[in-house]
Design a protein around this nucleic acid. Structure first.
Lengths: 357, 357
DNA sequence: GCCCCGATAGAAACCCTTTACTATCGGCCT
DNA sequence: AGGCCGATAGTAAAGGGTTTCTATCGGGGC
């Protein structure tokens, strides 16, 4: 593989001149020399060595994106947004699926650091785990120190994200929409307790109810993991209470998907027996049975803004904070409650319950 | 950020010794010296510079995965498989969503090359485009030349993939299952003509029919793009013919998803009026309305095997070729045809047709 | 005619590791 | 006792580029 010195030799110039042409440096090079270098480049099929360049600049044009799981449509979409913006700037994107596992996260950050990645974007939410925060924090500080950009797309222990959405307002708006449909007793599939976004969304739920003058029934707030399994389990947990409710608000779409599946298994009709609402509007949301009412989050745009923040930081500017708007999308999983006063608790086949756990 | 020389200084040894400890080289270092180095490492929070190392080794532990779109569940799953295997080996994964765009693909390969990535995995299928093949081929050859591994997960102009599935047998098996249900006139949403996988799957369709002693009606084979839009369009195209059919076989799940959506819009019931089958078994397939019958492809495993091939090549061994098994999964989008002799062409609201194009 | 300056070119140092090669030191073999 | 060998340590080069600094050259100002 040709190096710059071979290019220089073939062009009959010094490596300095060749470098100046190739890297488009801000330094005068005569037209004749430039032309000869360019000719040599194409003749030798020269591709500059990003490692050598990076070694000198203490940085390579690579951005790592820390996600829970690239297979989760939420993160896939965000990563794609980052990628779109990054590619335009000549950056490569490294995907890091941590499964929210502290060790994996640590090891990814370490690898990224050893690679002198120019930036890390945390797409997923921070956890409320001081131990991890400490350790990752050390690495993150180390990266920042050498000029790398660190950007968050969700609230974290670092504070407000450089680009994010108003989770509280989003859920509150959905609760408002549900109330408007006539629901009074609304359950919440709240997701994990340790995840900051989940907590924000729970707060949105509380605010939404408060704004409608409704009280929160804590028995209708159930915490599970942030995935389909959690959604199914959430339904079982909810039905195991003796409380009645006519709508279920979920803090993300995956939860809603799992809830929908479990409800269908139990023979509980949506939205006739109970309404279900999600959050995020991942692409499958429109495809479920019935199509899921949810809160749209501009995920790809979020990713793009994340990279924009990276560019700003790398350019030495203050990153700033931008909040993207959310929008309530009412599809067919929500409807008016069956009765407007007392909301019947759906009858479930007892036999099915044991198996669900 | 601490460098190895600082570590060496603090430990009171030479950089050579420090390096030998840090990089776990196969060279004797006294226990005392080793301990002092390790202490210095943790004291300085030293992280080796992968760029310097890579510069010397002409390679960094990074593998690029070329996909159509990371947002497509098929690719997300494959990338995850690659990532799982790669992480275990200390490699980082770069996602490259090319949108099957020649320029993007070129530029990604170039970037990967400039980065001295140790490997490139082509997750998506090759296209039948000699111009692109040429150009990408040059870069790929360039990568191979410096010892980088190039692995394909789908048939390409390079020949058989290092890890893949038997697309022909897979579709043939699904056609067989459809025939067994009683279908005789089966339509095919064939996907793009230029994509090699799509072509293999069409061949599987032909073989499946041939094995059942059935003839292919070319009017029932329609080509569209490989996505949901293509599926919707395919339905319109099919209905625009005057041919009857009782089942629709799709060469991938996205097509089937689009078909399902369009059929629902047109008021055509699945599977009562027509059966629909997909291919790939992406995770949403089980969530659609009705749940999609499809052919399961072990996507994550495919990704893992892809990285395994990378490791073999990097280790100097011959890559070999492994074919992963597929499995027909019958869910609720397929059923017995309404009449077993003459299959009625579904009645569609004419008005809806124009809008679909 | 001389000095200074801008434009252009090149030499060499530097970024951080790895590693081939050289050096030192005991101990063991003969 | 001398030579040789194994274990351990260090020196320096190399890998490919960028950049600072120095050098050369021609021309304009006075």
């Amino acid at each position: 593989m040709a190096s710059i010195s071979e290019v220089a030799r073939l062009a009959g110039v010094s490596t300095a001149t060749a470098s100046r042409v190739v890297s488009e440096a801000d330094y005068p090079v005569s037209a004749a020399a430039r032309e000869r270098v360019l000719k040599a480049v194409s003749e030798l099929d020269y591709v500059p060595n990003a490692l050598a360049r990076g070694l000198l600049k203490h940085q390579v044009p690579v951005v790592g994106v820390i996600v829970h799981d690239i297979t989760d449509p939420y993160f896939a979409e965000v990563v794609r947004g980052v990628e779109d913006a990054a590619t335009a700037a000549g950056f490569l994107v490294i995907t890091c699926s941590t499964e929210r596992n502290a060790d994996r996260e640590r090891s990814y950050i370490r690898l990224l650091r050893s690679m002198r990645a120019a930036a890390v974007v945390f797409a997923g939410s921070g956890r409320d785990d001081p131990e991890l925060a400490d350790d990752v924090g050390r690495h993150v500080a180390g990266m920042r120190e050498v000029g790398a950009a660190v950007v968050h797309l969700s609230p974290s222990s670092d504070g407000e994200p450089e680009a994010g959405v108003d989770n509280v307002a989003g859920v509150a708006a959905m609760v408002g929409a549900l109330v408007e449909l006539g629901h009074r007793r609304i359950a919440l599939l709240a997701g994990p307790t340790g995840l900051i976004v989940a907590r924000d969304r729970v707060e949105g739920f509380r605010r939404g109810l408060a704004e409608a003058g409704l009280a929160v029934d804590e028995r209708l707030v159930v915490h599970t993991s942030f995935d389909r399994e959690g959604g199914a389990l959430g339904i079982d947990l909810l039905l195991a209470t003796t409380e009645s409710f006519s709508a279920i608000c979920c803090t993300n779409d995956l939860l809603a998907l799992g809830a929908l599946a479990r409800l269908a298994e139990l023979g509980i009709r949506v939205p006739e027996d109970v309404s279900v609402a999600g959050f995020d509007d991942i692409s499958v949301a429109a495809l479920t049975n019935p199509p899921l009412s949810t809160v749209r989050v501009p995920l790809r745009e979020l990713g793009r803004r994340g990279f924009a923040a990276v560019e700003r930081i790398l350019g030495g500017a203050a990153p700033g904070h931008v909040t993207l708007p959310t929008e309530v999308i009412l599809r067919e999983s929500t409807g008016t409650p069956r009765s407007d006063e007392v909301h019947l608790r759906p009858v479930i086949p007892r036999a099915a319950m044991g198996a669900a756990r």
